[in-house]
Amino acid sequence: MKPRVTIISLTSCSGCISTLISLDIFPQFLERTRIIFFQFILDAKNIEDTDIAIVEGCVSEETQITLLRDVRKHAKKVYALGTCASCGGILSLSSSKVADPISNYIETNGIIPGCPPPSKLFGNSLIRLVENKDIILSQKNMCGNCSLKRDMKINSHINIYKIIPNPEEITLDEENSECFLKNGILCLGPITRDGCEYKCIKMGLPCEGCMGPVSKDFTSNLINYLSLINLSQELKEYAGIFYRYSKPKFRR
């Protein structure tokens, strides 16, 4: 018996969906499951009993809460797909809009984080779901396996004065590039979950934290992290960084 799968989109950019579809294993996923609700590719209207529900996007409207609860009622397991569903996502930057992770309203069985979720993690997770196993995520932050850290395994020279580096300030030489923190550029690697395959860092850009935190919440982690540092003016003025991908619930 193929597992029944429901895929729901809330407020989002659909990037997770487009990543899902372009995954190598997507045809296999179609073969091995019975998709009963997926608005992007199917006509189905109603939420029905399902084994796996995957929810993408953040909760920003009242109607979505009703929908979510309905999904939870019909689904054996519910997973949050992408940073929007698991942390709140880019809409957290907005001060007027609500951007809640789905776990604020319903119990979830796991998350597939990332903006978009890294394809390796995404693919493996989907296969595990189809095989009725739980998703395995790294419990570590990025620094441990980061190629830029090299020998200075513990970073005691954190010294930040820039949030967004001017492109010319970035070392392009892959061989000689150094840890961003050492060079005074804010990298969110320390407070971000490992698993994205270091895509930004390989391209010479610091981590933006799209994978979300491992524990605690993004904002707390960032404040704890920045409290260690003598902040420069640029950082003090730029409040937007604190809710790049999630914001504390009580701000409303």
Binding site: Q139, N145, N155, P190, V214, L228
Partner: peptide, 23 residues
């Protein structure tokens, strides 16, 4: 299993009680 060696604790410890031993 959770430690990612970011070194924040290393920086904040008031007694330098945290050290790195064999990674």
């Amino acid at each position: 299993d959770k430690c990612g060696l970011c070194g924040l604790c290393f920086k904040i410890c008031p007694y330098n009680a945290i050290t790195l031993e064999s990674e």
